[in-house]
Design a protein around this nucleic acid. Sequence first.
DNA 1: TCCTTAATTTGCGCAACAGTTAATTAACAG
DNA 2: CTGTTAATTAACTGTTGCGCAAATTAAGGA
Lengths: 110, 110
Amino acid sequence: MTSLTDTFAALSDPTRLSLVEKLLTRGELPAGTLASEADISAPAISRHLKVLREAGVIQQRVQGTHRYYSVRPEALRTVNGWTMDHRAFWAGSLDRLDDLLALDPEGDDT
Amino acid sequence: MTSLTDTFAALSDPTRLSLVEKLLTRGELPAGTLASEADISAPAISRHLKVLREAGVIQQRVQGTHRYYSVRPEALRTVNGWTMDHRAFWAGSLDRLDDLLALDPEGDDT
DNA sequence: TCCTTAATTTGCGCAACAGTTAATTAACAG
DNA sequence: CTGTTAATTAACTGTTGCGCAAATTAAGGA
């Protein structure tokens, strides 16, 4: 089992979050594509992918010499679940009324 | 402005996540209470609180010699917003994802 | 076999992080 | 002013994280 903090740690690096966003928007991608589009070396990307995989954020599919990566839905569900556990706290607050109304225009007694 | 990765980084430490959970469930608390309940020194807690504050996760209210801390709703909204941006990817059961997304709004709990 | 391509692992340097104890700042009471 | 309490900052130490270049593993083609 990977903990919630492990997931947050995996997503706390800009390079890794960028990798995850790519996989989310474009689906499964090979390591080579991810590495060639990044501005750091391939070994560095490989390490980031390993961190993400060990945190349970992404999964690997091997085909020949290629390794295809994709996001594990469970990881995002876990993060979402944590925020939802405390939804009553942040959804009902008027800390930033404008943002709240922008997210949920009919959320109050209009 | 604090980035999403800064928020994730702030929440990636078990001690800090624990502090945030305490503030979420019990509301505003002074630094002393948080420090006395932790198993590490007060200075260490103080630093964690500083990290959380600089990441925009918590806020501070000063009253006399006491510093009261509480969670900023905006922080949790931001995290929730990120998961919601990719909701189509992770929501629903894996094998029925496409079907679920194709269903109309009244389809899931009747 | 030999060579190329894909990707990872290794070795190394450096910066950042998390913990400690000691010192400091700040508010308040006597 | 002096002392007490609350909390933070300072100084130091060990560990972890991230980058690179070089070496290594693995699959496939001539």
